[in-house]
């Protein structure tokens, strides 16, 4: 056997670890999934949802939309982008783009940082956020975190409210401030998190942050990190909520079903696996062996 194919079994073996909203959410949804995905780093390429082609198409359309939004916010000509939307042949994209064009004037107030990532140490680990857009209003010392959600179904507000992203993102922005935009320390009450859905643009979900929430989030982040750190290999148990298994690639390994769940029932808060704590874009030539 190739001895190189072993893997860590507890968090203590992979210190330091960079936690993202997905990994925290994974642990909350199913500790076993966290263990398989981040500790074992197990690629298990089963379908996430059916029809598999439709799910793939939607994922690609979502990626495309994120890219377009970023390009538009960096000043690439809207006409050229519009032309590429029409040429894409992607059915959802023209409508999403149309809605985004209507949003742009609102985003042009204040200063914008598209695709901005921050990380913060917590104990022996780090926390990471990748913002789609941070908008900053200097006079009011106020910042809005925008997150584009392109999934087919929007999750109810109550579910969004419980998601780690809703807490982690404002928490990290409050910790780091926006030094490049002239503000090194934002107060929590000056931060707002907005989920914007390009297919229902008039109903964004907004979450105002506050000092109390910041304190609560800090405590819960410390608690969950300590909890994950404490666990022995056998303590990453499978979830009791089998709904998570319908849209989880590990369902065959866990003996939790054969077919992937229906895309119709998949809510927009389910993340596809694949996010890595070292997400870097290296070129192809670097790996060619001599």
């Amino acid at each position: 056997m190739d001895k190189s194919r072993s893997h860590p079994e507890t968090l203590r073996e992979v210190q330091p670890f960079t936690f993202s909203q997905s990994s925290l959410q994974d642990f909350s949804d199913c500790p076993r999934r966290f263990q398989l995905r981040y500790l074992f780093q197990l690629s298990w390429p089963a379908p996430i949802a059916e029809p598999i082609q439709e799910n793939e198409r939607l994922t690609r359309a979502g990626e495309r939309f994120h890219n377009l939004a970023r390009q538009a916010l960096l000043g690439v000509s809207l006409d050229a982008l519009h032309e590429s939307v029409l040429a894409s042949g992607e059915s959802n994209l023209p409508l999403w783009w149309q809605h985004f064009l209507q949003l742009i004037p609102l985003l042009q107030v204040g200063e914008c940082r598209p695709e901005y990532s921050v990380s913060v140490p917590m104990g022996e680990h780090r926390l990471l956020a990748k913002f789609d857009l941070v908008q900053y209003f200097a006079t009011e010392q106020r910042a809005v975190i925008w997150d584009w959600k392109t999934s087919l179904h929007r999750p109810p507000r109550a579910r969004l409210e419980k998601r780690w992203q809703t807490h982690l993102y404002p928490y990290l922005l409050a910790r780091t401030g926006l030094p490049r935009l002239g503000n090194a320390s934002l107060t929590p009450s000056g931060i707002e998190m907005v989920y914007w859905f390009p297919h229902t643009p008039d109903q964004p979900e907004r979450f105002l942050y506050s000092e109390e929430q910041f304190q609560r989030d800090e405590e819960s982040l410390q608690a969950i990190l300590a909890e994950i750190n404490r666990r022995q290999p056998s303590q990453f148990e499978q979830t009791a909520n089998e709904r998570h298994c319908h849209f989880c690639v590990y369902r065959s390994l866990c003996e939790r079903g054969i077919q992937a769940g229906s895309l119709e029932e998949m809510e927009g808060d389910i993340d596809a696996p694949g996010e890595s704590s070292l997400d870097l874009n290296f070129d192809q030539i670097g790996e060619i062996a001599f």
Binding site: P121, M122, R126, T176, L280, F282
Partner: peptide, 23 residues
């Protein structure tokens, strides 16, 4: 950068020239 010794803040990019060109 992944260790707790790095202070809070924006992410440093670690890239090759080819990776930068592609981005």
């Amino acid at each position: 950068l992944a260790s707790p010794e790095a202070p809070p803040g924006g992410q440093v990019s670690v890239l090759t020239a080819g990776g930068l060109a592609r981005r």
